[in-house]
Every structure is written in C-alpha cells, then in structure tokens.
Nucleic acid binder design. Structure first.
Lengths: 227, 227
DNA sequence: TCCTCATTCAAAGAATGACTTGAATACTCG
DNA sequence: CGAGTATTCAAGTCATTCTTTGAATGAGGA
C-alpha cells in the first residue's frame, strides 16, 4: 500500500475518465445526453457519425462509467450516469472557455456574434416567471421538451416558430431557451422574433443548467406526449 | 456559421482540455500543482519521472492552457491557470469515485483502509477552530505549509511528528490534514498519534479543498520562511 | 565573456486510438 | 419459431501519443 505502482494505477484511473471525454465526438455525445436519454440512432444523427462509430464511442463512455444504458423494447437508451457528470462537463467547458485562447475563435465561428449582455440570467427569468410578465419558449425538438423543460414554458420548436407566432401575446417579452451555451436554436429564434418586431432575448446557457440550478422544471406524462 | 465543421472544431477544443488530463502522470501533476506552484525538478520528483518527460507533460498541460509558468532567477515555476482548474480536477475525481467501479479497488490498494466516518468535516473543523478545542496539524512538507495553510494550523511534517509530539497539548484532539483525499500523509500521522495514545482524526480531503471552500487560510511571508 | 545549471527540443520505437466496412448478436413482434 | 431491426463486434488502416536518450537552448553568476 502507498507505493508508486498503486499510486500510478489510481491516477491512471482518474485519467481514464478524462480519456472518455478526450474526443470531440464523445464530448458532443455528453452535451446531447445532458438533455436527457437518447438511443444510438438519434445520437449518431446528432453528432453526424455512422451508427457503428457512435456505438463505439458510447461503449467507451460506458466503459468509463460516464453513461449508463436502459433497454426499452428493442431500443437501448443511453443517459449520463449521474448529475456529477454534468458537473464535470460544465467544469470542462468553463476551463476551456477561460483558458483555451483559440476556443473563443472557434466558438465565434460556430455561434456567430452573440451579445452576452443581451442574455437573460436564470435568476432574472425565475423572478419574471413568478411575476408573470414574460413568455418562456422552449425551442428544442418536441421530444426534448417532453422529457423535461422549464416550468411554464411553451414548446415551439424553432422550425414551427413562424407559423405559431400569432399565438404569442404581442405585448410581453419572449425568452427563448434551448440546450445550452453552445446551442444555436435559441439564437435563431431570437433573431426571427426580432425580425417580426417582437421583444425577445435568449436565456443564458440552457435547460440542463437550469435544472442543475434546482430551478423549477416539469416534464410531460406519457399521456400528454401521446395526445 | 453553425455548420458541422465549426461545431466539430468547437467540441474538439473542449476535448483538448480533457486530453490534457487524460494521462495518469499529468493527472498527478495537476494534483500536486493544486497545492501550489512547483518547478520542473520538484514535479519530476513527485511523479517519479524523468525531467525530460515531466517537461513534456507540462508543455502539454500548458498548451491546453491548464497551467501557466513564472520565471524566478533561473527556475521556471508552474502553477494551475486558475481555481476553475481545481473545480475541474475535483469534478473529475468525483465522477471517477462515483462511477468507475474498479477505482474503489485501486484507491483501497493505494490508500489502505480508511474509515470515512472517522474523518472530520470542513464545517466541523471550522467550528471547532473557532471554539478553540482542537489542535490542527499540517503534516505536509514545510514548503507547502509556507505557501498556504489552514489559519491557525501548526506545521509538523509527518517525519518530525514523533520528535515534536511532546509539544502538543495532551488533552485536546488533534486534527491532521495534508494534500487531499488521495494523500496518505494525514493517515500516517493519525495512525502514529493514536499509537501514542492521542485522540486524532484526519480532515476530509485536504488543503486545496479547504481553500476552495473559502474557509480561512494564511501563508507565511518571505521573512517568516527564512527564519 | 564564459561557464553552469534548469529546462526544453529532437528523433525514434512501441503502443494506443479513431473511423470505416461488413458481418454477427440479440431482441421484439407477428 | 422466424423475420425484421437495433446495436455491437472484428478487422484493417492511418494517425497520434508516450517514453527514453542525448543534444541544444538560454538565463544567471563569476
């Protein structure tokens, strides 16, 4: 006990967790899975890889204990092993954003210009939901809304936004949110709403961060999803 | 903007940070650097590697922006780029401990049996320091004590403990602490003290976690170190 | 200026990782 | 039980990573 070989083995164990995240495609998988569980084909589609390769990466993640599976009918659903993994992913993103100089450029290239001061903070949104002077719109795909969303939010996937615009009250500000800080759906929604003359801003980060901050969430029952 | 190539590049950027930690020796380096800054030779010694290889790993870490350097005379000192890196390292350890099944075995092999319920929590220790009914002993090497320690703690490196035992009051409990949950110094100190009939326990985790929790710390001025 | 010492660089070999293709499991439902 | 699907496995190729050895750099002090 306490010898060099044992210490090396222990720290190799820590490094194994880092290795699990040490690939861009696996990082994308974690980011998607932070939204909720998915099956392999959905995940392959999200990260634009072959099903075989996605399965390979998922096995790597599962081997490190970062994701776990559940079988339903003949589908296998993957999800993050616990909230601590979201912690880890958030910390990783934070360090990346803070210290990796070229990441700013990469983020700008992917996200386009986004004015941080124009985002609504979680605390502000929570207060305004309580006050009732805001419409919260979840612009993620309907299945993600179903598996969990901000309490009181309304589901309008971004591709349906133009059509359902008339149903939104014109005199209150719209706050759109999506998957997280590196998701573009809410940005697109805000741009679209503003072009139509609506007051609109995006929520900082996205749904996983909201849930992780222990702010009110709700999810649809199976019946509601079916209807 | 918003295309697949840009998204891949962004997430590859996140993965680069994970890659920096995805090696056992680099993980050990981070763990040591969480204590405070060190120069290459010290670090090589801590992780039992050649100076060249240590330098190589440090360059990898620096390239990812996880550590930064400072020159003093003809030594180059490395330190973590910010507290967020400690966050990341802590989250990584937590996920590893929670989900990587074999890690329990590895930790047990390295740490030996350690009774978690026998550790003093940070909040308990903070309260008892305020009440004054405890002696806090920092059993890390003196240089680490000098660069930062729990307020009111006394420095007794573990190899000097037997000699300085008589200076410790016999009627109050001793709480020993060291570098963190995977450091053995405090365990050794507690074993030794108990063999001598003293009431002794170890603090949960170690100094970096205490400091990170914004609990009171102090460090020695250059004059004090010299004396 | 020259010497010394801490640190980094360069080259090279073994090991590991990523992604593709095509075949093999394993499950569900008729 | 057998057909149909979702997922995983296996093999192969190409690229990257780790570690060692020995030499080079570059700052400080004589």
């Amino acid at each position: 006990m306490g010898d060099r070989a044992a210490k090396d083995a222990l720290f190799d164990g820590f490094a194994d967790i880092a290795k699990a995240l040490a690939n861009g495609r696996r990082a994308e998988l974690i980011d998607v899975l932070a939204q909720g569980e998915r099956h392999v084909e959905e995940l392959a589609d999200e990260i634009d890889q072959s099903v075989a390769n996605t399965s390979f990466h998922l096995r790597t993640l599962a081997g490190a204990g970062v994701v776990v599976t559940r079988r339903d009918k003949n589908r296998i659903y993957y999800r993050l092993a616990s909230d601590r993994v979201i912690d880890l992913w958030t910390a990783l993103r934070d360090v990346a954003a803070a210290h990796h100089a070229e990441l700013d450029d990469l983020a700008a290239a992917y996200l386009g210009h986004r004015d941080q001061f124009d985002e609504v903070s979680r605390t502000e949104l929570a207060a305004r939901i309580a006050a009732g002077d805001v419409v919260v719109v979840d612009v993620r795909p309907a299945t993600e809304f179903a598996s969990g969303h901000i309490s009181g939010a309304r589901s309008i996937p971004v591709e349906r936004l133009t059509r359902e615009l008339r149903d939104l009250p014109a005199d209150v500000e719209v706050v759109a949110y999506c998957r997280g800080p590196f998701c573009l759906l809410a940005d697109e929604a805000v741009r679209l709403l503003r072009r139509k003359g609506r007051a609109a801003r995006r929520l900082e980060d996205g749904f996983p961060e909201w849930r992780y901050a222990s702010l009110p969430v709700e999810s649809l029952s199976v019946q509601e999803v079916m209807s």
